[in-house]
Design a protein around this nucleic acid. Structure first.
Lengths: 222, 222, 222, 222
DNA sequence: GATGAATGAGGATTCATTCAT
DNA sequence: AATGAATGAATCCTCATTCAT
């Protein structure tokens, strides 16, 4: 099993309890795979009651996205706008990963939507992904400017999006493969350190790849 | 819309036509979101006919996975076992990306499953992901040995998995954001070149641009 | 058509209305032959509504059996435990037949199950038939002790089971053959009198069968 | 499990194999509960092939009934018409039971139909039950004439029908209850002896154990 | 005579949603 | 705000049957 975070807040309003239940289920099973009845069951509610708080399954889904994505954008914005400091990328990694550690369902929700390309996607992109990417572009330009062409920036953004979201989105798979919880604090710490190291290397100019490649000295022809 | 490849197969056997239709739909909408009726409609078949070829929706789904993943593992294996040559990672990137360009649904299928953590996941991992990772580990160890600790290897594998699958899996999102088909040949070429450059940099020692860099840069109080 | 009794119950709760509809249909057509949709139609309900009251067709079927068989067992028990009196069998026949006259579907349900030997049978036997037979055995032993061996008791029980249930279970056939309703009060009265007479004869020692057997001893002329 | 008889004849024509498979399945599960596909599977045939031999499921069902019932009527007729002998009922019991022992599915088929009262019933009655009863009436009149009123004859016929068919029809139930095969030779022998004893007693005048017996013995107040 | 593939009708059940209470 | 009951649409799947091979 995977740590699901956001544990105590659920004792709040009914709407919040519903959002929590819905978030985890949507993250697990996607929109189509989640039954309203199951959301209701998870917060000890009659399915009908749910409609006192949200107009429809669709509306609930969008509320879940909004609640999950707003803080992410906010963090990105603040992280990008703050005092650049010596290592802006490092701080951004820290900030974003720290946030995602508390809302690990968010990357899964995005991934689900991104893969699906359903009707929601256009809206998702318009309302959330674009602002999110805008922040990313600014940061990326500043950070990885060394040795990267302009038309490589989108690829770099996409790469970082995958590098950052991936470990969260694939958490169920990783848990199954390695039998450890990839969302445990120490695992996340390791991931953060790894990402920083990675960022450092990407910032560097290329290593002269194989000057006199000791690894495979004599290219034996076949 | 996104290029879906495998166009000519439609003229093949009925079973192949069903697999094609199912693959694209499962990739788009996931298992739960795909209706058997829609699969049938997409290959001009009565839903009942489908059951002459596959025992159930579940069995069809697994056949889709098998057909999609077997070549991927095969390519990885061959790419890893072949003559290493001077730049094994480059060749692997070439091989894998070339294959995925022809079967762009496969990464989406994996991503869908990986995120969901459903009942299928355990089987998927056991039968497909583990062999796939095994090949990856071998390659990664050889390639990225310079300057990476042993316990960073799994993270590196995961990172590459995300870097390689990501552009395919998120193709719908990218198409929505950039209004270009990320699976078009030139886009893929650019992606391949980008990944190779990335691999080269990761192979290099750190640029260590900030020699006196303490571990945690979050000094600046907010 | 055959009188189906239990007419007023329709005004009862929805669950009771469903049970009534299901009982008559299961009795008529058996479990497999009965469509949920038909049950729903018979009580002016949407098929889906039915699932608000019973978990499945199977569960509904079992509820029907329970409702029908519990009173039968109860009557048998009371009839057996009561003051034996001079003619216990007669009273038992009265009691059981009177009950069955009000729930004529019950013998048909049992017969359907008994003949089929399906999956339900084992449960039916365990929960209902065994207790039912237990009462029967006690009664039979007391009643028909005269002139019957111990190992004939099970056969006697079975015989009476057939004699008592048969007229109800075969009611549709009898109606078709004789063009009268075998469940009409006067028909049932005649049946009860017949069974009592039969019981009386079975209690007697054998008639010296054919003392000086001319083919047909005393052809009492008609 | 219950002995199903008719073992070797199946090596005959395909049609006979189909009839055998259909007979046992119809007896087990009734008409509605039996799938053509299952009949086909039981005789290692493609469902489509079945239609080379029978026009429809319905036609197959009727062929099964015809094949099963014709011998029964024939035996009854012969048994009734033959030299009456000293104990005509005994010989009839012998004949019928011996036949049914070889075709134990027949009583189950009749019972299934008789209970159901379906569309087939009318035809079944017209073509098979009436002739069958006609023979029965003749025999019954001759045999049990002593001490039975005219209007009791139908009841007597029905009673005997239940007594004779019951043990076969309820075989699955009996097997479940007593954990013995009620169709085993020794069980059938016992049954035959029991029926003969029963017939003898029914032929006798009442034991009239309670000379001053009021109609309703339920005197004892509770 | 046998079969694989195809199909319209119907099977039970689940779905999101509504509404009176 | 909460719920039990109701429902039309849709779910996956099975059915008896047909037909070209």
């Amino acid at each position: 099993m995977i740590a699901t975070a956001r544990p105590a807040a659920d004792t709040g309003s009914t709407a919040a309890r519903i959002l929590d239940a819905a978030e985890s289920l949507f993250a697990e099973r996607g929109f189509a795979g989640t039954a309203v009845r199951d959301i209701a069951a998870r917060c000890d509610l009659n399915p009908a009651s749910l409609y006192n708080h949200f107009e429809s399954k669709q509306a609930l889904y969008e509320a879940v996205l909004a609640r999950g994505l707003a803080p992410l954008i906010e963090v990105l914005r603040r992280s990008a706008q703050g005092d650049p400091g010596p290592l802006p990328a490092d701080r951004m990694i820290d900030d974003v990963m720290t946030l995602l550690a508390r809302t690990p369902n968010v990357p899964r929700l995005i991934q689900q939507e991104a893969v699906s390309g359903g009707t929601h996607l256009a809206r998702l992109v318009q309302r959330w992904i674009r602002p999110l990417l805008a922040e990313g572009v600014a940061a990326a330009r500043r950070e990885t400017a060394q040795g990267w062409d302009d038309d490589e920036v989108p690829l770099m953004i996409l790469a970082w999006m995958n590098l950052v979201f991936g470990p969260f989105a694939l958490a169920p798979l990783l848990a199954e493969v390695f039998h450890v919880d990839p969302l445990a604090p120490e695992a996340l710490d390791r991931q953060i350190r790894f990402l920083k190291k990675l960022a450092r290397r990407l910032r560097a100019p290329d290593a002269s790849p194989h000057p006199a490649d000791p690894r495979n000295p004599k290219r034996t022809p076949r």
